[in-house]
Design a protein around this nucleic acid. Structure first.
Length: 482
RNA sequence: GGUCCCAUCGUCUAGUGGCCUAGGACAUCACCCUCUCAAGGUGGAGGCACGGGUUCAAAUCCCGUUGGGACUGCCA
């Protein structure tokens, strides 16, 4: 007895949606846990919207998430012949009929209050194939079709409310309902795990599947379904590509770790046992149950994602953090360049060695890797980028601040031990002499050196920055306050 | 409009008839720690949509109401 077979079948019509990522993840988790097979099928049968470069986007996103398929990736467009075979068999067995109604005609015939959808006008007209005839499925007029859903239980649909939907375009192209079902059937898919927006077409696919069974020699069991709750925005609407930030690539570029992203995604509609929410992939795999998936829509909360990512970042070893943040401080990425003019002190530019030293100072201060450059840039710029309001407050408009700067220059010039504790003690003393606490005394120095009132630990920073640069920046601050 | 789905703190959720005075996490507030900012620690505020049943007992089961959402294409 082999395990279940599930599939994830995105269409290459744009960036990779976080909802798709969640669907792919839940399929993958289920397959891993049940020792099943995870199939990746690219559904590229929409000539008008599909683009080849988007196929690459899907592969990259899946790779980043670590969700590698056990079978595939396959292309639905490669299954064209199989779709034709299925459509012909269905037609031969009377499940399909030709229809030449235009949308306008269908609309015109519709009586007020009539059920929506096609009215079955061509059902018994006995039309044959032509350039303007599509093939419709002859849905049963009586009875109900029940969708066995692992998450929602049995969902019943009255057959007479399901209209005769189009299965093959007049151009000959096979539509989603049939293409998808035929592929699932050929792939021997046992569980269809997908978004809730597909629940309404599940009965159609079951009807098709039954019809395909009836018109071929092999009887393939109808799959079980699991319709995952929608991912919604703060307006409680389905996440929209147009107005919501839903591209996984966006999050990747902002500096989210895929492990954190996966962990967060797993918590959307499902939760691990116990109170711990930061859980390793192995735990996710071990505990995941489709039956436990929530029924109600989940809000994609970037704040919580950020927090989760921060947890993962802090859990990294210094070496891992350094490696993870390297792409974000790459000069190519930051555009950190030495300026054209010659400053009076040593010219700065990005130094991987220096960054390796200071990276630990920022590791627990960032929630996403994209915040790293701004936090360390003062180490690599010729001149810090000043927060002018802060500068005015603690230096220009504060005589004591200027006195601190003066005192720091005088003492740092003659210090023979350039280490953080010593640098700290000097400012502590300076503060004592002026009757202010260290937290006050360090402010003008911090601002002069880093340009800001917030940042990594000051005295460690001075240590790594070196005496020459420190003194030059202190003098520059004094000069520009005059 | 029709069909279907859903309903626990602002958010994600735990809860499967008594263990619930409803637990955790994010966010938020206060305090502590502290060279800033974070991180960390402690504590606070905050929820079972409403109305009927069933039951000795209901957040949990049933019905209804209200509210939200999805679908309703010769897209996927």
């Amino acid at each position: 007895m082999s395990g279940p077979r599930v599939r994830f079948c995105p269409s290459p019509t744009g960036f990779f949606h976080v909802g798709s990522a969640r669907t792919a993840l839940f399929n993958w988790l289920f397959a891993r846990q049940q020792d099943g097979v995870f199939i990746l099928r690219i559904e590229d049968t929409d000539e008008t919207r599909d683009r080849e470069e988007y196929v690459e986007v899907i592969y990259e996103a899946m790779a980043w998430l670590g969700l590698s398929p056990d079978e595939g990736p396959t292309r639905q467009s490669d299954n064209f012949a199989a779709h034709q075979v299925a459509a012909n068999a269905l037609l031969e067995h009377g499940f399909l009929y030709y229809c030449d109604c235009t949308p306008a005609e269908i609309e015109a015939r519709k009586a007020p209050g009539a059920p929506p959808g096609y009215d079955g006008f061509c059902r018994d007209r006995g039309l044959s194939r032509s350039a303007t005839t599509a093939l419709r499925f002859r849905t049963p007029r009586e009875g109900v079709t029940v969708v066995h859903d692992l998450i929602r239980g049995d969902v019943e649909f009255a057959n007479n409310l399901i209209d005769d939907f189009v299965v093959v375009r007049s151009s000959g192209g096979v539509l989603y309902a049939l293409a998808n079902s035929a592929d699932d059937r050929n792939d021997r898919v046992t569980h269809v795990v997908r978004g809730e927006e597909h629940l309404a077409n599940a009965p159609k696919q079951i009807m098709l599947w039954e019809a395909m069974n009836a018109s071929s020699d092999d009887e393939v069991p109808i799959p079980l379904f699991a319709h995952l709750p929608l991912l919604v925005n703060e307006q409680r609407k389905k996440l929209s590509k147009r107005r919501d930030p839903v591209s996984t690539e966006l999050y990747r570029n902002e500096g989210y770790l895929s492990s954190a992203f996966v962990n967060y995604l797993a918590l959307l509609g499902w939760s691990p046992r116990g109170d711990e929410e930061i859980v390793p992939l192995s735990t996710l795999i071990a505990q995941f149950r489709l039956e436990d998936v929530s029924h109600s829509p989940a809000f994609f909360d970037v704040k919580k994602l950020r927090h989760t990512n921060g947890e993962y970042l802090r859990a990294l070893s210094p070496g891992e953090f350094l490696a993870a943040s390297a792409p974000w401080v790459d000069p190519w990425h930051t555009n950190w360049q030495p300026s054209d003019r010659e400053p009076s002190w040593q010219k700065h530019q990005f130094s991987p060695e220096l960054f390796a030293e200071v990276a630990p100072l920022v590791q627990e201060r960032v929630a996403v890797l994209g915040e790293v450059p701004a936090m360390v840039e003062f180490f690599f710029l010729d001149e810090p980028r000043y927060d002018e309001a802060a500068f005015a407050k603690v230096i220009t408009n504060d005589p004591v601040g200027q006195a601190i700067l003066d005192g720091a220059i005088a003492r740092y010039e003659v210090l023979d031990d350039w280490h953080a504790p010593v640098l700290h003690d000097v400012v502590q003393q300076l503060g004592d002499e002026h009757g202010i606490a260290l937290r006050k005394a360090q402010a003008p120095i911090r601002c002069a050196i880093t340009g800001s009132l917030i940042g990594p630990p000051l005295f460690e920073s001075l240590h790594y920055l070196g005496r020459a640069t420190t003194l030059a920046r202190l003098r520059l601050a004094l000069a520009r306050s005059a």
